[in-house]
Amino acid sequence: MQLEREGIFLEDTACFYLAEISMALGHLHQKGIIYRDLKPENIMLRNNGHVKLTDFGLCKESIHDGTVTHTFCGTIEYMAPEILMRSGHNRAVDWWSLGALMYDMLTGAAPFTAENRKKTIDKILKGKLNLPPYLTQEARDLLKKLLRRNASTRMGAGPRDALDVQGHSFFRHMNWDDLLAFKVEPPFKPFLQSADDVSQFDSKFTSQTPVDSPDDSTLSESANQVFLFLSLKHLQH
């Protein structure tokens, strides 16, 4: 919503958000988790303006060096070519998505889009990366390195993971220790009336009728018996 409101972000603003997201991705990767669903809708801003990644429904756990997974998932505009090709993928997919997100922040649109799903996929797999002339040299260089179709040569794909991305000159002014300690001032703080103020959310979400998620797990007979036993004991007391 903030990106929509602004149209595009200045590079300093994008740098702050991308830096915080890179730290979150690096942390997940250290835990053997690929995030796989990096897109604007899944990046929340806390009341203090710092980033919070949400929606871990597409995460893949236990992916350490040398392991690949083949699930087709995510929003295609931000999806790495190797997911679309179903050729097996690892944590490098998150760095492609960071590149796609960076492009969106700085230009107002994802790097490869078309009028339908099939044409969008074709563009992601084969289209030319067009970089607007107003981008700085550092931004252009990082985008090219994150949006490499060959996952093994993509920035962040090596054993140093997030450290390689964070070492790029685009982040040359970032103090990473201060960032981790929340000492870097966010570029924007949501204006909230109270802790449960939802005015910053799009009304298409807040106007929906809340519905409980269906519980598809059925209790086993033995669990049912235990539950009945405990209920009876509770009644007796």
Rank of each mutant, 00 (worst) to 15 (best):
M1G: 13
M1P: 06
M1T: 05
L3Y: 06
E4T: 10
E4L: 15
R5E: 14
R5L: 07
E6N: 09
G7R: 02
G7Y: 00
I8V: 14
L10Y: 10
D12Y: 06
T13L: 02
T13Q: 15
E20I: 07
A24W: 05
G26F: 12
L28A: 05
G32Y: 01
I33K: 00
I33H: 00
R36M: 01
L38R: 04
E41K: 09
N42V: 01
M44T: 05
M44Y: 15
L45F: 05
N47G: 09
N47V: 05
G49V: 08
G49R: 02
H50G: 08
V51H: 05
K52Q: 15
T54N: 08
D55H: 03
D55S: 04
F56D: 00
G57Y: 00
C59M: 02
S62E: 13
G66Y: 12
T67G: 10
H70N: 10
C73V: 03
G74Q: 14
G74D: 11
G74A: 08
M79S: 12
M79C: 14
A80K: 11
E82G: 08
E82Y: 08
L84D: 01
R86H: 13
R91P: 07
W96A: 06
L98G: 04
G99E: 03
Y103D: 12
D104F: 12
M105K: 02
T107G: 06
T113L: 02
A114I: 02
N116A: 01
I121G: 03
L125T: 04
L125E: 04
P132N: 02
L135E: 02
Q137N: 12
D141L: 03
L142A: 08
L142R: 00
L142Y: 01
L143T: 04
L147H: 06
R149H: 05
N150T: 03
S152T: 13
R154E: 06
R154K: 03
M155T: 10
P159S: 08
R160N: 10
L163Y: 14
V165D: 13
H168C: 01
H168T: 03
S169K: 08
F170Y: 12
F170Q: 02
F171V: 07
F171G: 04
R172M: 08
R172S: 14
H173E: 09
W176K: 06
D177W: 15
D178K: 12
L179D: 06
F182Q: 14
V184Y: 07
E185T: 11
P187V: 13
K189R: 09
P190D: 11
F191L: 13
Q193R: 09
S194Y: 15
D196A: 08
D197A: 07
V198T: 15
S199V: 00
Q200G: 14
T209I: 14
T209E: 15
T209S: 12
P210R: 08
V211S: 10
P214G: 01
D216Q: 08
S217W: 14
T218G: 11
L219C: 05
S220K: 09
E221S: 13
E221P: 12
S222A: 11
V226E: 09
F227P: 04
L230M: 13
S231Y: 14
L232H: 12
L232V: 08
H234S: 15
L235I: 13
